[in-house]
């Protein structure tokens, strides 16, 4: 794993979580979509918040595709869940929201999961052909 590859994972986390946040902001502005009128989901794209969210999600998609081109899906998934920790920390220190004990426990579990995966190889190929396989 090079610095460049870590930056791709960071870009996924930042673009993905900010993109979702902007989508939510836009959809709150537009109000609930009726089950009988799904076309409103398409016209929602013209809302500036939703449009900005879509742009960020395109950035997320580019970073995600790039990550999957050199790492396994089961490696990339836990690595990017740090985004939830990022959002929680942001809401504590920037938005000054109260974070419950349950949420802190969630943050600790996610971080330890990421720490476990962080020590492993990022592709199945490398596991098979690594030094351990030869021994």
């Amino acid at each position: 794993m090079t610095l460049r590859k870590y930056l791709v994972l960071v870009a996924m986390v930042v673009f993905g979580s900010l993109g979702d946040l902007l989508l939510k902001r836009g959809m709150s502005q537009l109000g609930p979509i009726s089950v009988h009128d799904w076309t409103h989901a398409i016209t929602a794209l013209f809302n500036p918040w939703v449009a900005a969210g879509v742009l960020l999600l395109i950035g997320f998609f580019a970073a995600y595709s790039s990550a999957l081109s050199w790492a396994d899906l089961t490696y990339v998934m836990p690595a990017t869940s740090l985004g939830y920790v990022f959002i929680a920390l942001l809401s504590v220190f920037v938005l000054r929201e109260d974070v419950s004990l349950t949420r802190w426990l969630g943050i600790i579990l996610i971080s330890s999961g990421v720490a476990v995966i962080g020590q492993s190889h990022n592709t199945t190929d490398k596991v098979a052909h690594g030094p351990e396989a030869i021994l």
Binding site: T74, G106, I107, L109, I110
Partner: peptide, 12 residues
Amino acid sequence: ANILVCLGVMLL
């Protein structure tokens, strides 16, 4: 790792 993260996300 998957189970830890999954439980953590559920708690969040």
